[in-house]
């Protein structure tokens, strides 16, 4: 992969600019996207119409889910309010806290800053998708968090756990400093960073021993 190609992939993976470009393309304003969404048709009354929903097929946690999505709807809102996956938390809706982190094709992404239309044809994994669907067995990272008694209020926990999961794929052997860098896109207001790092290091240890 040459450098420009690598940068292109990086931008696709991480850029907030991609998100904003997507929003502009759909004719919505950036400021209104984060926390606004459409109720389901089940609610009865017709709603204020600004844009038309489109039926999409999404691959979420290994299942194909069909869902009506507005052009400017964020992935976090679709997950929480249309697919019932409330494990993905919204702490800031503006890419400041990382509570909404999910995996898209294995890469940690802020669900609040990604349009649902952007994930068509890509595999989305949320906190609900980490357990073994057949046995309920926890993932390596989740086991590590249980071992270490991680998190306090834990509103940030799903986001951190998704970031840890992505980290271990990229770097199975992190130092504490490397783990801190990998998780620095997530904010813990209880500031339980020491224990969160213990969880990350424990997860790496468990992953190595499998």
């Amino acid at each position: 992969m040459d450098q420009s190609e690598a940068l292109g992939v990086l931008e696709q993976k991480y850029s907030r600019r991609t998100f904003i470009k997507g929003v502009i393309a759909t004719g919505a304003t950036v400021s209104s996207t984060g926390y606004l969404f459409r109720g389901t048709p089940l609610l009865g009354a017709a709603a204020f119409q600004t844009a038309t929903e489109r039926l999409l097929s999404l691959n979420v946690n290994g299942q194909v889910r069909r869902v009506d999505v507005l052009p400017h709807e964020t992935l976090a809102m679709t997950l929480r309010y249309k697919l019932g996956l409330t494990g993905t938390k919204l702490g800031c809706d503006r890419a400041e806290c990382g509570a909404c982190t999910v995996l898209v094709d294995g890469v940690a992404q802020y669900g609040c800053s990604m349009l649902t239309h952007q994930v068509r044809g890509r595999a989305v994994t949320t906190i609900e998708g980490l357990e073994d669907p057949d046995t309920g067995e926890l993932s390596t990272v989740q086991k590590a968090v249980m071992d270490e008694g991680g998190f306090q209020c834990a509103f940030c926990a799903p986001g951190f756990i998704m970031s840890m999961t992505a980290m271990l794929q990229d770097n199975p052997n992190p130092t504490r400093e490397e783990a801190a860098h990998a998780l620095s896109g997530n904010l813990c207001r209880c500031a339980d960073y020491d224990k969160i790092l213990n969880c990350a290091m424990r997860a790496a240890e468990l992953a190595r021993s499998v």
Binding site: L85, G87, T88, K89, I127, V145, F151, F155, A157
Partner: peptide
């Protein structure tokens, strides 16, 4: 309650 917190089952 930790299991609920780390599997997304905890309801805030």
């Amino acid at each position: 309650d930790l299991h609920a917190k780390i599997t997304g089952r905890a309801r805030y």
